[in-house]
Design a protein around this nucleic acid. Structure first.
Lengths: 346, 346
DNA sequence: CTGAAAGCGCTTACAG
DNA sequence: CTGAAAGCGCTTACAG
């Protein structure tokens, strides 16, 4: 049986409010959307009626009419068991939330394990019109998601830099100054044998960090003792550290993220290599954990929360107006703590 | 200008499919929703037409008709700067995703900082009918969210146990066996002076763990050397550990989560207290990081991902059918590693 | 400055 | 087994 048109039971609708205020429902719509062309007295009368009835516009109906979802999408591709160890995304998501929440918008999250599932997630976001736009995070070399989104007609914002100047707005945080400062810090402490443990080289930011390291070392007339690519996991950081101890041993290691540095610290201590006396260690992220290791971790700090907030603002603007400018955030910076010290045996 | 009814431009609608298949749109709806009462040949014809046109039912329209949002809500109340250090929720969320994603449903996440904002988040989920139900996580003593949800008419599932037998289905994982095993492990190693660093006592699971610890210790005819409540943060764990070293020193410390245990490890090492020679340490969570500390962390492992998956299944069932049974997950268990060893000076 | 009506794209009884 | 029509609760030109 079709429900009778706006009888009193159930949540009030715009029809109830219109009747209560003695106006048409079109007018109610104008008022709650703050459109011009409504007399102040009428406006007040409608507002009062809505308050009295405790009416909130039905989001689904609004979505259908405006063809807007009031939601933004984030796809995380990674092993679910690893996601817990990554300190970046929780903070990044908190930043997104900080701008969406006051706007009454929400974040729709999709955690997937494989590249295929990732593509499916974007397609499904688009096909179901589930979100107004998506974040393009964990940018990869020759990333095909830009083309995918273009084909799907789904607005997207780049979280980071893509080498090909793209059609999508980018929200960028430059790692370079932090890495450069870290290398200078080590050189100033007398280190000449510095190694690097990088993240997954398929990821653009892993490449950028590594490249910044290599250039910084070269800038001091040195050559890296070793450069090892891994996958950003603690297990990867531990294995790389063990390998570095086996070979031509450096006096300092720079890691591409904090979890790897923490795992490296564990391996060094387990091998009887004193930090920082025998080995200096530098992380990357500036996360909570580095404050509480022993020794506390010298690290390169970026601000994932600000990054998330800026990306959300940019995506909102893009989805609303059709374009948005690039944003450049304050660059990463060095946070010296106790895991770096003078080079041994000078 | 009102858009002309289903002209060809833009995405195809159910009307286009109906025309293409030569049936009414009502019939198309029956077919895609797998309702009985449609001839197989017709069914196939409709499916073909939909495929040919690349049609996917519009989610917003469907939501409006069915009064279902195809989304579940999770509210996280915590300092955004702390969220990154918590290993539980990313895994828990991955578990939720693992059941929602194949169903074409999504998780809507809200990260809030205060109790007021938390209540607002639930109210807004309900008022905007943004989700079909919510997870009630981080259960607190005398939690008023159960009443709040009842008032809002919003289905909810308890993630954990509430002491008052409630009207809401609960998905429970018993910490007790893990804690009991940890204490037995320590006693077997000769420890008689065991301390406990607990989490925020406002949280039910913090109380349960603490209580389990106290009962286990009493079960061996011992008394805890000290029991310190904190807030589950690394900073809290570090401070509590420092305090324990100042007083009547224990030979083993059990922590209510891994981050606190890791921070405790840092303080112990910084104070020259060798682990496990002079002090045994037990964590709680079984997270990745504990594998890579030095020494590797003995911990009590639960399975946040399974927990998330079970909670999602239960909430889906509740939202669909109006009720769902409680679920009891396999209990937490001890994972002995290197941070526990024989008690010193017996 | 306001009202009446059509439209968004589905679902669902009801009548055949 | 199928079709025509009303309804979900909004928004938006258009006419007054």
């Amino acid at each position: 049986m079709p429900r009778t048109k706006s009888s009193t039971p159930g949540a009030p609708t715009i029809v109830d409010v219109a009747r209560e205020a003695g106006v048409s429902k079109g007018l109610v719509s104008l008022v709650i959307n703050d459109r011009p062309g409504v007399a102040d007295a009428t406006r007040a009368r409608v507002r009062d009626a809505a308050d009295r009835l405790g009416w909130r516009p039905n989001l689904q109906a609004r979505r259908l009419s405006t063809r807007t979802t009031y939601a933004l999408g984030l796809v995380l591709r990674r092993d679910p068991r690893i996601v817990a160890a990554d300190p970046f995304y929780p903070a990044f998501m908190a930043g997104i939330e900080s701008v969406l929440s006051p706007e009454g918008r929400v974040l729709v999250l999709s955690v997937v394990a494989t590249a295929e599932a990732e593509e499916r997630a974007y397609r499904s976001f688009a096909a179901d019109r589930r979100v107004d736009g998506v974040f393009l995070n964990d940018l990869r070399h020759g990333d095909d998601r830009v083309g995918l989104l273009a084909g799907l007609g789904l607005p997207g914002v780049l979280v980071g830099r893509l080498e090909e100047p793209g059609s999508l707005p980018a929200v960028v945080l430059d790692d370079r100054p932090g890495v450069t400062a870290a290398v200078r810090h080590l050189v100033d402490l007398g280190h000449r044998r510095v190694a690097y443990v990088g993240g997954d080289p398929a990821l653009q930011h892993a490449r950028h960090r590594r490249q910044a390291f290599e250039e910084a070392v070269a800038g001091h007339g040195l050559t890296p003792t070793a450069v090892v690519d891994t996958d950003f996991t603690m297990a990867g950081g531990a294995a790389a550290t063990a390998a570095l101890l086996g070979g031509d041993r450096p006096t300092a290691i720079v890691y591409a993220n904090d979890p790897m540095a923490v795992a490296g610290l564990g391996v060094l201590q387990g091998s009887g290599v004193r930090v920082p006396d025998a080995m200096s260690v530098v992380g990357f992220d500036g996360t909570e954990i580095g404050r509480h290791t022993h020794p506390a971790l010298t690290t390169i700090r970026s601000d994932p929360e600000q990054w998330g907030a800026a990306a959300a603002r940019t995506l909102l603007e893009l989805a609303t107006s059709g374009h948005a400018p690039d944003v450049e955030l304050p660059p990463a910076e060095l946070v010296p703590r106790r895991s770096t010290g003078p080079a041994p045996d000078r």
